[in-house]
Design a protein around this nucleic acid. Structure first.
Lengths: 158, 158
DNA sequence: TATTGTTATACTCTATAACTATA
DNA sequence: TATAGTTATAGAGTATAACAATA
């Protein structure tokens, strides 16, 4: 029996890469889907001069006016030290206000300026546009079940 | 009518944070679910002295022995320059071999050493354990549909 | 000229620890 | 002592551009 001899030295020179079991794994596909969704939203955010990371910060301040930096950092699950440069940037760009609280001179009350509310409104529009795209891909029939599973994965003890 | 006056200066001091529409958005829950899944897998990988990022690299080399660095970087969607320090580390730890190809003296043939195969086997065990946990959360009834949606989101034009 | 891999460099996101000023 | 916020620093992970060796 004659066998074809490979003339090449390595695999994957023409795109015939073997991905093994990766495409069958939930974890892998979850990662790929999240990356695609995030990138698409980042592109929308970039069109209005922002980044996805700023969105959560502005939204949380907008929804919780007077929130402190420590509470805000807990709310989006990051260390308080990571917030300092972000808030400096947002304040420099006139999007948020930082006032000392009267009853605790160590803490700040964070609020949105009118410009901050404006940018947040634009970001909300982006988010809704993005959601509509996702909804179309998922399909209204499976939407609720899909969301429920995502929430379970996010909260369950893994 | 008497109203209770807030004695505090800001919101969110006792955990009553308003997350607004975030919990209703697919994009947000996708992000949270991915983060939880990734962290859980990272913890398993750490137990055997590795990181999730190394897994894809080892798997792709194991499945495609002789692959070049350029082909490998394309296969996991990163620039070739990001691969250099990773491969240096894997080679230093005796997990991969880099040999010059005979027909192109610029390129390397990447292969796993026995130790590399060993670590990959352990990582595969971690991955399967992780998948079982995810499968249990998702439920066998919805598994296929969930996966199909993830794949659509990952590949669709967003 | 084009390609393989390396280097230099930089930027984002994140964390820990030490610090200050208040409490 | 404890807490709110800042600073210094570090480490992943990523990218671009320029480069040497080879094609």
């Amino acid at each position: 029996m004659v066998r074809k001899i490979r003339r090449t030295n390595g695999a994957g020179e023409n795109g015939e890469i073997d991905y093994g079991p990766l495409p069958d794994w939930v974890g892998y596909n979850l990662r790929m889907a999240q990356a695609a969704s995030f990138q698409a939203f980042a592109k929308l955010a970039e069109e209005i001069g922002t980044r996805p990371g700023r969105f959560a910060t502005l939204l949380l301040i907008g929804r919780n006016p007077g929130i402190s930096q420590t509470a805000l950092s807990r709310a989006n699950g990051r260390d308080k030290s990571t917030l300092t440069p972000v808030l400096n940037d947002l304040a420099r760009r006139g999007l948020i206000r930082r006032e000392r609280t009267t009853n605790d001179q160590r803490a700040y009350r964070l609020t949105l300026t009118p410009a901050g509310h404006g940018l947040l409104r634009q970001l909300m529009k982006c988010a809704r546009r993005h959601e509509r795209k996702l909804d179309r891909i998922i399909g209204s029939r499976d939407q609720a079940a899909f969301m429920r599973i995502l929430k379970r994965i996010a909260t369950q003890e893994l």
